[in-house]
Design a protein around this nucleic acid. Structure first.
Length: 390
DNA sequence: TCTGGGGTCCTAGGACCC
DNA sequence: TCTGGGGTCCTAGGACCC
């Protein structure tokens, strides 16, 4: 989707279309999306709201409507799945489609692309762009270059010529750090990389990255899709397609840094409850609990603990998080953000709970389930720990 | 009033096992 | 005068993506 979050918000405010509009970027926040007029002023998603306001003070700032994003995201994913079941959703607003099997039914890739674009436009009122190629990374690059509202095809015989003059940083998967490192090595363009044998690349940047970089530069990275829909507002898991997620987590930046243990732990509990609920909804449980703490100076650490068996129980995850927190002995250190993540997820059906002698017949797991039932019936947040009451 | 939140994958060292 | 080699698991950090 083109400028997804901004485009969705502008459906309700069409009069703002030609003005610079920024979604998100409130107090301590970053820009979720900027429409093209705002981008003309240099505003980009991911940029701090402060910086965006400096670049474009006249921009209209809209608060994100996550319900709308989630609805549109699911609808667009459905449009993709009408084309092919081979969909790899990479984010709420983007996916790879393997259309090799759809040709006889739906026509050439370009015809399929135009059809998808028309349906998304007509049904959802937003525009999107499509890149077509034989591999993931080249398709991704083509779609970026097709924006906004366009289609770009890169046939295999044109890939090498197209990639050659580009900066290595344009390759999908080569970020800021790796780009800088490659530049230091004298590898500035994709052509510079293709001149080197894979063994030399591996020797210079490491075995894995070297092989990956070599494939990216030659346009020969993977073409098979993973149907796991990661972090896409949970729709992948809910639709039952593909593998389960590998981890689930939640984190939040405080409105003001806090050095108070009770305040920090209250937030940890709130985040834990949220994550545990998502685990239960997805019918998975996890063994490793990771606590993330970001300090006032932005230094960020993680501490993790692997339990004897997977859990989806709020109090068990929270207990682990508290142990991790207290082991840090923060005492008066300013905390900017805390996060809780559960990894090593397995389907709950596969978890055999080990009985403990003397254990109560009913425990926290029953409490969680009761809370879940109440939430389904009366809305989330109707039952919560007393410490989280306002 | 600098710098969000959701993820995946890789690396590297140490413990542990055979 | 000694301490191999292969594997897995755990932990912490970091790069990257949107």
């Amino acid at each position: 989707m083109d400028a997804f979050y901004a485009s969705v918000m502008l459906r309700e405010r069409p009069e703002l279309r030609d003005q610079p509009v920024v979604v998100g970027g409130g107090h301590r926040g970053v820009v979720l999306a900027a429409n093209y007029p705002a981008r003309a002023h240099g505003v980009r998603s991911g940029m701090s709201g402060t910086q965006a306001r400096r670049l474009c003070p006249q921009a209209v700032r809209l608060a994100p409507d996550y319900d709308a994003f989630s609805t549109v995201s699911a609808a667009v994913l459905e449009v993709f799945r009408r084309v092919t079941p081979l969909v790899e959703a990479v984010s709420p607003d983007e996916a790879f489609l393997d259309v090799r099997g759809a040709a006889r039914r739906l026509g050439t890739p370009v015809e399929i692309a135009e059809r998808v674009r028309a349906v998304v436009r007509d049904e959802q009122g937003i525009t999107c762009s499509v890149g077509i190629a034989a591999t993931i990374s080249v398709a991704k690059l083509a779609s970026r270059r097709a924006k906004p509202d366009g289609v770009l095809v890169l046939p295999p015989d044109q890939v090498a010529g197209y990639l050659a003059p580009l900066d290595v940083g344009e390759l999908h998967g080569i970020g800021e750090k790796t780009r800088a490192r490659l530049h230091e090595l004298g590898l500035v363009t994709v052509a510079d990389v293709t001149e080197l044998p894979v063994a030399v690349l591996q020797q210079r940047v490491g075995r894995h990255l070297g092989a990956h970089l070599h494939a990216l530069a030659h346009g020969t990275d993977r073409s098979e899709l993973t149907t796991r829909a990661t972090g896409v507002f949970g729709y992948g898991a809910r639709s039952g397609a593909g593998e389960p997620d590998r981890s689930m987590g939640a984190q939040e930046t405080f409105a003001r840094d806090s050095a108070d243990r009770e305040t920090v732990l209250r937030e940890v509990l709130r985040l834990t409850a949220k994550v545990a609920r998502r685990l239960r909804t997805a019918e998975v449980a996890g063994r490793t609990v990771t606590l993330t703490v970001r300090f006032s100076d932005f230094r960020t650490i993680t501490r993790s603990r692997t339990l004897a068996e997977p859990t989806d129980v709020t109090q068990e995850i929270y207990a682990a998080a508290v142990v991790l927190h207290d082991a840090l002995r923060l005492r008066g250190v300013g905390v900017r953000l805390v996060g809780v993540r559960v990894e090593g997820l397995v389907p709950r059906a596969r978890v055999e709970r080990q009985g403990v002698l003397g254990e109560r017949e009913h425990g926290w797991s029953d409490a969680d389930q009761a809370v879940d039932r109440a939430a389904r019936r009366f809305g989330s947040g109707v039952v919560r720990p007393a410490s989280l009451l306002p």
